[in-house]
Design a protein around this nucleic acid. Structure first.
Lengths: 183, 183
DNA sequence: CCCGAAGTGGAGGAAGTCCTCCGCATGTGG
DNA sequence: CCACATGCGGAGGACTTCCTCCACTTCGGG
C-alpha cells in the first residue's frame, strides 16, 4: 500500500476538480455530466477520470470533506455543555449543508466512509445525551432521527421550485420544535 | 375549445401509460427513459409521446390525480371537526404520497395545476383553522409549512439508501410534534 | 357491413454522456 | 541541466435517450 504523493500540480488540479464538481452538482443536480465538471474546472476530461475512477468516488471525496466539516461543527457545539449544543449544532450544520459541497449528502451511507460516519455519529450521540440531561430534548430521540432531519432538509432545499415560498430554515425550526419535550 | 373524447382503446392506453409511468418513475426516479415507460405499458413509444407531448405533461397528469386524492383525504378529515383532523390528514396524505403516484410530487408548483392546488390549499387552511381553534396546533403555522413537510417527507422516502434505518414515518411524527403548541 | 377518421408501433436520426487511448507537456530528483 | 516518470488534453467509439415519421390497423357511426 505504498502511495507516493501526487505531483504538486496534480494535487492542485484535484482540488479544482472537487470544487468545480461541487458547484456543478449543486446547480444542475448529481446527474450532471462529468464533461461539464471538467470544463468548469478548466481541466481535461481525462484528468477527472484519472483522479476519480467513477462519479461515486468523486462524490465520496466531497462527502468526506462534508463529514469533516460536520464533525468540526459538532465539536464546537460540544464545547458549551449547557443543553443548547444540539440545537446550535443542527442549525450550523444545516448552513454548511446549504453550501455547494452539501450536494454530496445524498451519498450519506456510502460504505467507504464508514469511519468518518462513525466519528460523527459519536459526536451526535454526545450532543443528544447532553441535551437530554438538560431537559431540552425528548428522551426517545435517536441519532437516526437527526440524520433523517438532515436528509429531509436537503429535500426541501432542492425543491425550491419557482412558486414555493418554501424555506428550509422554516422546516428546520419546525423539526427543532418537535425535538423538545412536550409540555 | 371543442375537444372530442378519445376513442375507447386510446383512453385505455392513456391510463396504462399513466400507471406504468408512476411505477417506473417510482422505481428508477424521474429521469427514467420514456421508452421504458412505453415498454412497461405494453405500448409503442409513439403512443406515449402522442398523448403526452413532454415528460412534464405526463407528470402533470399524475400530479393532477395526486391533488385529487389529497383533496379527498382532506375532505374526509374535515368531516370530524374536533381538532384532530389536521394530524389525520397529514398522516393519511403521507401514505398516499408513498404510493407510486406520489412520485409526481416533485412538480408541486406546476403552473398548469394552479386551480387544483388552490382547492387543496383551501382545505388545508380549513384544517389548520380547526386545529388552531381546538388548541392542537400552534398559531403561527402556515399552509406553506405543511407543504414543506410533504416535500421533506418525499426527500426522506427517496433517500432510503441501503444502510439507513431511515423511516419517513418517524420523521412525520417528529414534524407533527413540532406543530403542537409548546407546553 | 363499410369506410374514413383516429390510433398504433417501431425504425432510426439527432443529441448527449461515458470513458479510454495515446502523443505531448511538465515537474522533479540527481 | 537533463531524463524520465508523472501528468495532461481532447478526439472519438460505444452506448443511451429523445422524439418524429409513416405505413399499417382498428374503432365506430351511418
Amino acid at each position: 500500500m505504498e502511495v507516493r504523493p501526487l505531483r504538486r500540480d496534480a494535487a492542485a488540479n484535484r482540488e479544482r476538480v472537487l470544487s468545480a464538481a461541487a458547484d456543478v452538482f449543486h446547480e444542475r443536480g448529481l446527474a450532471a455530466g462529468l464533461d461539464d465538471v471538467a470544463r468548469r474546472a478548466g481541466v481535461g476530461v481525462a484528468t477527472v477520470y484519472r483522479r476519480f475512477p467513477s462519479r461515486e468516488a468523486l462524490l465520496e471525496a466531497l462527502l468526506a470533506d462534508l463529514f469533516d466539516a460536520y464533525t468540526a461543527v459538532a465539536d464546537a457545539a460540544l464545547a458549551q455543555p449547557d443543553g443548547t449544543g444540539l440545537a446550535s449544532y443542527v442549525r450550523t450544520a444545516s448552513e454548511v449543508q446549504a453550501t455547494p459541497r452539501g450536494c454530496a449528502l445524498r451519498l450519506w451511507s456510502s460504505p467507504a466512509l464508514e469511519p468518518r460516519r462513525e466519528l460523527l455519529h459519536q459526536r451526535m450521540e454526545a450532543l443528544l445525551g447532553d441535551a437530554k440531561a438538560h431537559g431540552t430534548c425528548r428522551d426517545d430521540v435517536t441519532v437516526d432521527d437527526l440524520v433523517g432531519m438532515f436528509v429531509a432538509l436537503r429535500g426541501v432545499r432542492e425543491s425550491l421550485t419557482a412558486t414555493a415560498a418554501l424555506d428550509w430554515r422554516r422546516h428546520l425550526e419546525l423539526c427543532l420544535a418537535g425535538l423538545r419535550p412536550a409540555s
